[in-house]
């Protein structure tokens, strides 16, 4: 595919493909980003479900966690891009990555629109709604996670 060939011809991609250390560090940073992003989203969802922090603190907690959530996501996006660049042609054909990149926009949009609205609602959103938002968010992101982990096994074929 011409786009992939163009990518592979760039200085950046050549440098990444030839530096095993970069790829390994990118993998670790990707996981650390997951810790930050996933941890904050998880705590928020936990609160929406009614566990952990009390519901009345929802808007405040959501406000405090949001910057970390965004930072975590950016870390994952950048490190994920570096990982993709380590072998664009093979990753392009990877079915698990395609599934992941299909679910990802859905998860992202949901997380930063409807879910955000419900989390920041003042007075706090009704428990039923909150739980539904948390449930959808969890399912979507867990889907992204499982698809991501499946990339490895599919990549070796």
């Amino acid at each position: 595919m011409p786009l992939i060939q163009w990518i592979e011809s760039t200085w950046l991609d050549t440098a990444i493909r030839h530096s095993v250390a970069t790829i390994r560090i990118a993998e670790i940073i990707h996981l650390l980003g997951l810790t930050l992003f996933g941890g904050t989203v998880f705590i928020l969802n936990l609160t929406l479900f009614g566990f952990g922090p009390p519901r009345r603190a929802l808007a405040r907690i959501a406000g405090e966690l949001m910057p970390w959530t965004v930072a975590g996501f950016l870390v994952m996006a950048v490190s994920g891009s570096v990982l993709f660049l380590s072998s664009p042609d093979r990753f392009y054909e990877n079915p698990a990555l395609r599934v992941k990149l299909a679910i990802l926009p859905l998860a992202l949009i949901f997380q930063f629109t409807i879910h955000r609205k419900i989390a920041f609602a003042d007075p706090p959103a009704a428990p039923g709604r909150a739980a539904l938002a948390a449930c959808l968010s969890s399912v979507l992101w867990i889907g992204v996670g499982f698809a991501g982990k499946a990339i490895g096994p599919y990549a070796v074929q």
């Binding site: 493909r17 030839h18 095993v20 790829i23 380590s86 072998s87 070796v156």
Partner: peptide, 8 residues
């Protein structure tokens, strides 16, 4: 290093 040894 070459074609994604890290992938393997």
């Amino acid at each position: 290093p070459g074609r994604s040894p890290a992938l393997v």
